[in-house]
Design a binder for these strands. Structure first.
Length: 563
RNA sequence: GCCCCCUUGGCUCAAUGGAUAGAGCGACGGCCUCCGGAGCCGUAGAUGUGGGUUCGACUCCUACAGGGGGUACCA
């Protein structure tokens, strides 16, 4: 908390340390018992020409208790402070309650919007488990940045162009029309098999793709229809996952512009012909060349991404453009950004590849083709089934059971993906994704539900005296919650939702322990006999509940009141 | 070949260059006269190898080993 850091900086200034430097150096020690706040003195040693330990001793000697700081003690090169915990708790809870829904946000937002592209599936294909990652990570980042005060444009960029569409058309010609997403997906899978071992069919697929590229009326009509059907299928899953887009675009909308773009670069001599293809030399020459147009005259994903980036910059003038895409496309994005730079777009440096690790099965990459890989909906359904079975066993009279099972099952799947750093590969294991024990989404939801339960019994609203919160576990909860805004900010700047996931787990764990201790010792209960203390504890629990609720929502999990 | 990522208990993961490396699963042992046991408390168990930088290294540099990914006309 800033006011406490400043108080320490004042003491440090008395010992000759610049106030702003001291303020920045204050840390929360990893070993909590050691101190409430701590000032490591290493960095001041050079300028002051004294040993860190000597500086620490001077700071401790210069210390006089204030209404915020109770004690200071030099421990080698550190100065360990004990704060007035009552004052801290009061300040934290006051702030939390004042900020309300905005708690955890900061006001450091840029004027320009932040664009986040995520999800981006190919039409005519079902969503497989590995599609979970981009969707859920991207949505969490969009939520986090919005919470921080940024204006966010969340964008789904569909793969709605190319031979996939052509194959689908062949399938429809031979197997009949597909009325819904599932039928469309089946038709596509069948058609790809047919095309794979039949050159004639493959030629027809290419012909369809060509007709679409040339905007032949019939092709466009069929494409629009198939795209809509596919999208409806995606939306069904997105709704379950809490994935929401401000805008759904697709590559097809850039095909014509991509062609014109290549022509223009050629006449301007900024692109060149190589081996029959049109290529661009990126600013960083170690990245090779960027192919803009194939020798058969068609454009590529890369070309359309270039045009799309330029278009988005014109539309939004973004503060940052975030591509939440698999790490396998790292080179693609390096080339994209470096290509933009070579073309003189200084804003290329505001583009960012938010790369996440791949989904493996048994150590191998999931193959989208041969139907290897698991359907995302299948995983969600199984998770919900298991959640329902647990409710049937533990809480059979629960109202709204279906909705709760859905939230718990889906929550487990989402949290299993957001719980670790995104760059790690994940090996898909049913038992791991579907676990509800330990460090899981349901654990967090359960902690939230417990807090709700206590507050239902204790009554609201709560205006207790925070200075009565003297017990060690209460202080731990207060200190933990104080970190929330900082953790949200780190998650945004590092593009790492797991920072918030880890924070919430720690908070939930401390809360569960606090709660459990009250089960043994009546004096430690929130709903204890002393009216004043009870009110103070209820206020603390309300703070925990609010922090958990906001955090869960940011990650895309539903905070449940009962489960 | 070149480039990028990963390597921490049996397994899956944490750890802003900071003090005694922290959890979950699994194992073992406790805890329901309970404000919700999807839980709580406890025990055992880990930084791939060799150099280097630093007051201080899981963290930075370097070499090596093992694993994964990428490497112009797929996305």
């Amino acid at each position: 908390m800033l006011s406490f850091r400043k108080a320490i900086a004042k003491t440090a200034a008395a010992a000759g340390i610049p106030e702003d430097e001291a303020c920045a150096a204050v840390t929360v020690p990893r070993e909590r018992e050691r101190a409430d706040l701590s000032l490591p003195c290493f960095t001041f040693a050079k300028a002051m020409r004294k040993s860190p330990a000597a500086i620490a001793a001077e700071v401790a000697a210069a210390f006089a208790p204030t209404d915020r700081l109770e004690a200071a003690e030099a421990a080698g090169p550190f100065v360990n402070f004990r704060v007035n915990r009552s004052a801290w708790a009061a300040e934290l809870l006051e702030r939390l309650e004042t900020e309300g829904e905005a708690w955890g946000g900061t006001d450091a937002a840029a004027a320009e919007p932040v664009v986040v592209e995520y999800g981006s599936p190919n039409i005519a294909k079902p969503l497989l488990f590995h599609h979970l990652r981009s969707s859920v990570i991207g949505q969490a980042l969009a939520n986090l940045m919005r919470h921080r005060g940024h204006q966010v444009v969340s964008l789904n960029f569909l793969g709605d162009v190319g031979t996939a569409f052509g194959k689908l058309m062949v399938g429809i010609e031979e197997l009949g029309e597909a009325k819904d997403a599932d039928a469309l997906n089946r038709t596509y899978v069948e058609a790809s098999k047919l095309c794979a071992d039949d050159p004639e069919r493959m030629d027809r697929a290419r012909a369809w793709a060509k007709r679409l590229e040339q905007e032949d009326a019939e092709a466009v009509r069929l494409w629009t229809e198939a795209r809509e059907i596919s999208l409806a299928g995606f939306r069904r899953v997105y709704d379950r996952l809490g994935v929401r887009y401000d805008k759904v675009d697709g590559e097809q909308m850039y095909v014509k512009r991509a062609q014109a773009f290549v022509e223009r670069l050629l006449t301007q001599r900024r692109a060149r012909v190589s081996e029959g293809a049109v290529v661009l030399d990126p600013a960083d020459e170690s990245l090779g060349v960027v192919v803009l147009r194939k020798s058969d005259g068609t454009t590529l994903y890369q070309t359309r991404d270039l045009v799309a980036a330029i278009d988005r910059h014109e539309q939004y003038g973004f503060a940052s453009m975030n591509y939440v895409v698999d790490v396998a496309q790292e080179l693609h994005f390096k080339q994209l950004f470096s290509g933009l730079e070579a073309l003189g777009y200084a804003w290329a440096e505001r583009c960012m590849h938010v790369a996440f690790g791949q989904v493996l099965m048994g150590g191998r990459r999931t193959a989208t083709r041969e139907g290897r890989g698991v359907l995302l909906e299948e995983v969600l359904d199984e998770a919900v089934r298991r959640a329902d079975a647990i409710i049937a066993e533990k809480n059979p009279d629960l109202a709204d059971r279906e909705r709760v099972a859905e939230a718990v099952g889906v929550g487990a799947v989402i949290f299993s993906d957001l719980g670790t750093q995104i760059r790690r590969n994940v090996d898909f294991e049913w038992e791991q994704v579907l676990s509800f024990d330990g460090r899981t989404g349901p654990y967090l939801q359960y902690a939230h539900a417990s807090a709700c339960s206590i507050l239902r019994k204790g009554g609201e609203p709560v205006r207790g005296d925070a200075s009565l919160l003297q017990a060690a576990p209460e202080w731990e909860l207060v200190r933990r919650m104080t970190e929330f805004p900082n953790e949200v900010e780190r998650a945004c700047t590092d593009r790492e939702p797991s920072i918030v996931a880890a924070f919430l787990y720690e908070l939930a764990r401390e809360f569960r322990a606090y709660h459990a201790a009250g089960g043994k010792d009546r004096a430690l209960r929130v709903l204890c006999d002393d009216d004043g203390l009870r009110a103070a504890r209820l206020r603390l629990v309300a703070g925990v509940r609010a922090t958990l609720r906001i955090g869960l929502e940011l990650l895309g999990l539903e905070p449940l009141e009962e489960m």
